[in-house]
Structures are given as structure tokens and as C-alpha cells.
Design a protein around this nucleic acid. Structure first.
Length: 493
RNA sequence: GGGCGCAUAGCUCAGCCGGUAGAGCAACUGGCUUUUAACCAGUAGGUCCCAGGUUCGAUCCCUGGUGCGCUCACCA
């Protein structure tokens, strides 16, 4: 009836409990106090707090049992913290033999008196113990927790309580997203939800997942970005919108990439990329202060400071400094690419122009990006690689666009949104003609039509929330900030 | 997809030159009223990832496969 995880001894205890009339899976919980509030009011043995000597009730998971015959100690863990429970035979005479039916991992409710041990540890001296749910599968080794990375990801429900620090990462992530929402709502932004099923995969360059709707007998793509729908809402007059968007990209998995990931995208009418830069700086500094209490942090062993303002450097300047040639000089860039051993997958029918820019982007990514410790805004991306961004009025070869880099990683991408429908259609057409396997296969005419009705000057910003959580929680791998990262399904044998 | 590495008890890991496997924790039995990686004595627990091959004999060597990690490529 159960899986191989279940330990036979625990089944025997389960039977013994039932025989004694104890329901090992009772329908009701107990009215408990968070452990953290007890710790806060418990004080030390030298200076006891207000709650010492008073009754309290906690509920949580038994992490270990230290049995001395007539005395037993056990740490109990709830969401907020860990508290030692002390069981004394003298206080629990009728229950005492039933302690043998308890195991590490069991969920219990404990009522008792708050006090200290001889060594000064805050302890709840139990007067009443309720089994809330029997744990039939034994917990992992008690001081290593789960260390097999695969097991940690596959059985996160164990990892979260068995491995030190794991819960804190996800609590931080949850608070981060909550702070983002409050930050934007305070600035007049509306949170919206746009489709996940897209007839055309647009708003970014990436290979999409394809799925099929039976009743419509039509293929859909899982969204690679919500951008084009959010800008339709700007046309619709919503003026300030944001979405916390789960995006799906059918590409490689790495410490920085998961097939499904979460982005914040926001759009603001009457704003441009400079406003987006200000939002980015303010938001990151605000999050660091709220979550860490300071703007300095460590990520992948290096120090960073999220105190605004962040330095700004132009894309073409960084390119020139790293490569000694001009971004627009086709022959020089081609030579440089050859030096670096960069080759592009063949794209039959692609124009020389498209080839040049694909190559230049590669050279930039190899020579500049890894060196950008940051935080740093890289500004004025070339127009040919920014099909949705408005051109710099002073120089149409570049756009009003920036990306934010930190630790060699792209954290944010923003621009003044292109709102000229004719130019947008032309740029889409160039993208389709580039034969880039990751570019959309067709022009999104419905989006162009939306622009034909008129979209106000608009600034847009996207921030990778998983990566931001990595930085704020100092986690090296994106999988450590995803509760259930994508893994290969287990075989059925 | 390429390269490198890992897979042994529920968990964390040893296992030498090829001779059918060990420890700690967890579990079980007994002892113990102040531990916190509790301690002491004892017991039980194994498809050595899977399939082939070499060999008298394979956890060990070889080939293939599966899963995972790191890394490169690609991407955010």
C-alpha cells in the first residue's frame, strides 16, 4: 500500500497507536503559537523574559529524540524556528510509555510550561503531547540533512526542514516578490495577468515550447515573454501595468537557466528608459535594505553594493575598449570573431547585415559580459539587436535601451518602447528575414495593429526575479532559488 | 549536444593489487532526570544504479545504458 520509503518499525508503531485508541492522523490541529514569538519572549536564564513560567502550545516536526529514561529532549521545528521540548516522566506519568511510539520526523503538538534547562537553553516543559501526524518515512541523516543535490530537488518537501538554511532562502524569495508588488503598487502600477498560451512566440528571442489545443485544433506556444501583451494594455490606456510572469524557454539548463523562470515586467506610459533605470536602482536598493538590512552583499564569493546610482557605460564604448575595434566595422568585427574562435550556426538566406550583428553580439557576450561585475547599466544597445526598442534620437544606430549586469549575469533589460507601427513592422520583418532559429517565424500583425491605434511614449522594464533572488540570497545556482527546478522525469522501471 | 566527475545500508560516506562488503547517524533491545552531533552495551539492516563483456571469480577492469552534478556551447 505504501512505498519503499516506509520503515516497517514505524508501521508497527502505527498499529500500536491505533490499538491504543490514538488516531495517528487526527482531523484537527492544535491552537499553537509560532516558535519565534516564544523565543522572542523567553529571554535568557540570567534574564528571563515575560513568558518564562507561563503555559504555551507549539506545533511542529520532531527533529530528534534524546531519551534519558525518565527525561527526554527533542527539538521541534515550525516555520518560524526551532525550540527544544523537554519531556519529564514526573509531568507525563500516564503518557510516558507512549514516547516509544514517537519517531524523528513525527508532527506533534506540545503544551507545557516555558522554562530553561540547567545549561540555559529555552525549553518547553511538556505537560501534554498530541500526535498530529505520524511520519512513516524516516528522516535523512540528522546533521548532514540531504546533501545529494538530486534528492534535495526531487524531495524538496524533505529538504525544506531537514537541511539548514533552505527554508530561509525561500522565505526571502517570497518576501522579495511581495516587496516588489508593494513597491510598484505604491507607484500606481496595476498588476495584471496576460495569456500564457500564445499563438506567436514573441517579445524575446528564444525557442518556445509548443502545445496543442484540441477543441480549437490549434498549436500554441508557451509564452517566452509577456511583453507584447502588456504593451497592448498600454494602448488600452492602463498606463502603468506589471506582471509577475512565468516564462518558458525550450533551451539549455544551467546554474543560471531553468526552462521555466519568473520575470517581472512593467510598462509605464509617459516614461522612457531613463525612468526605468531609476526604477531599477530604487527597487534593488529598496529590496536589499528591506531583506538584508544593508545594501552591501556577497554573491558567488565577491562583494557588491546595491546602493544607487549604478554606473552607466555605453555598449559601443565597452565593445571598443574590450576589442580594439568599432562595433560597426564589419571586417574588423569578423576578424576579431575569428581570433576568438567564434562561429555562428549556418543561416541560409540571412543578409550580410544580419550576420554582422549576430557576430558582433557574440563578440560582445564573450569579451565584455563576463567581466561586468557590476552592478552596471550597459546602455544604448545597437538597433539591429533591439527590435522592440526606440532609436536614440541623436543616433539611430543605437537604441534607448539598457541591461543591468551583476556578477557577469544579466539581471534586467529595459527600453523606451518602439511605438511607431510602420517601423515596428519593418523591424519584425527584418527579424523574420534574419533566419535566426530563435526569432519569431512570422510578424505579429495583431501587435502592429495595436500600435496603429496609438501607444503613448512608454518605458518598459524586465527583471529576472529568479536571478535577483540568487543575488539577494547569495545562492550560486538558480535551482537553489526554485522550489521545484526542472529535472528529468524518473524512469518507470 | 560536447568534455569531466559521481552512483555502495533509510541518510552521510569508506572499501587498498579483482577473492560476494564496512563505519557513523537513523531503526530495534536494554541502561541512564539536564541533553542538544547526548552517552554506554547489544541486535538487525545490502539487487554495491542497470545490461552485457573479460575472468576460475567483478562493488572493483572493459563496453553500452540510465540518473545527477560541474563545465563548455546556447540563452535571461
Amino acid at each position: 500500500m505504501t512505498t519503499e520509503l516506509v520503515h516497517p518499525d514505524r508501521l508497527q508503531k502505527l498499529a500500536a497507536l491505533r490499538e491504543a485508541g490514538v488516531d495517528p492522523f487526527p482531523a484537527r490541529g492544535v491552537e499553537n503559537e509560532p516558535i519565534a514569538t516564544l523565543i522572542a519572549s523567553g529571554g535568557t536564564q540570567a534574564a528571563p523574559g515575560a513568558r518564562i513560567g507561563t503555559q504555551a502550545c507549539i506545533a511542529g516536526r520532531l527533529l530528534a529524540l534524546r531519551d534519558f529514561g525518565k527525561l527526554m529532549f527533542a527539538p521541534v521545528l515550525d516555520l518560524t524556528g526551532k525550540l527544544q521540548v523537554g519531556f519529564q516522566k514526573a509531568r507525563l506519568e500516564s503518557w510516558w510509555e507512549r514516547r516509544k511510539w514517537l519517531d524523528g520526523g513525527d508532527l506533534v503538538g506540545v503544551r507545557g510550561e516555558l522554562g530553561h534547562t540547567q545549561k540555559g537553553e529555552l525549553t518547553l516543559w511538556a505537560s501534554e503531547v498530541v500526535l498530529l501526524a505520524k511520519s512513516l518515512a524516516p528522516p535523512p541523516e540528522k546533521w548532514h540533512g540531504l546533501s545529494d543535490v538530486e534528492q534535495r530537488y526531487r524531495r524538496r518537501y524533505v529538504d525544506l526542514w531537514a537541511s539548514e538554511g533552505v527554508r530561509a532562502v525561500f522565505v526571502l524569495r517570497s518576501r522579495m516578490v511581495s516587496l516588489v508588488r508593494r513597491f510598484l503598487e505604491a507607484r500606481g502600477f496595476l498588476e495584471v495577468e496576460t495569456p500564457t498560451l500564445h499563438p506567436i512566440a514573441g517579445g524575446a528571442t528564444a525557442r518556445p515550447f509548443v502545445t496543442h489545443h484540441n477543441a480549437l485544433d490549434a498549436d500554441f506556444y508557451l509564452r517566452i515573454a509577456p511583453e507584447l501583451y502588456l504593451k497592448r494594455l498600454i494602448v488600452g490606456g492602463l498606463e502603468r501595468v506589471f506582471e509577475v510572469s512565468r516564462n518558458f524557454r525550450n533551451e539549455g539548463i544551467s546554474t543560471r537557466h531553468n526552462p521555466e523562470f519568473t520575470m517581472l515586467e512593467l510598462y509605464q506610459a509617459q516614461a522612457d528608459f531613463r525612468h526605468m533605470m531609476a526604477h531599477t536602482e530604487e527597487l534593488l536598493e529598496h529590496l536589499a535594505r528591506e531583506l538584508l538590512g544593508r545594501t552591501q552583499l556577497e554573491f558567488r564569493g565577491k562583494p557588491y553594493d546595491l546602493k544607487a546610482p549604478f554606473p552607466r557605460r555605453r555598449y559601443d564604448e565597452l565593445f571598443r575598449a574590450a576589442n580594439g575595434c568599432e562595433l560597426h566595422e564589419r571586417a574588423a568585427v569578423a576578424r576579431r570573431a575569428q581570433e576568438l574562435g567564434i562561429t555562428l550556426p549556418p543561416r541560409p538566406g540571412a543578409s550580410a547585415e544580419a550576420h554582422h550583428w549576430a557576430l558582433a553580439t557574440e563578440v560582445f557576450d564573450h569579451t565584455v559580459e563576463p567581466l561586468l561585475e557590476g552592478p552596471m547599466f550597459v546602455t544604448h544597445f545597437p538597433t539591429p539587436i533591439s527590435p522592440l526598442a526606440k532609436c536614440d534620437p541623436a543616433d539611430a544606430r543605437f537604441t534607448e535601451r539598457f541591461e543591468l549586469f551583476l556578477g557577469g549575469m544579466e539581471l534586467a533589460n529595459a527600453f523606451s518602447e518602439l511605438n511607431d507601427p510602420e517601423e515596428q513592422q519593418r523591424r519584425f520583418a527584418e527579424q523574420v528575414a534574419s533566419k535566426d532559429p530563435e526569432a519569431p517565424g512570422e510578424v505579429d500583425l495583431d501587435y502592429v495593429q495595436a500600435l496603429e491605434y496609438g501607444m503613448p511614449p512608454t518605458g518598459g522594464l524586465g527583471i529576472g526575479l529568479d536571478r535577483l533572488a540568487m543575488v539577494l540570497a547569495n545562492q550560486d545556482s538558480i535551482r537553489d532559488v526554485l522550489l521545484f527546478p526542472t529535472l528529468r522525469p524518473l524512469g518507470k522501471d
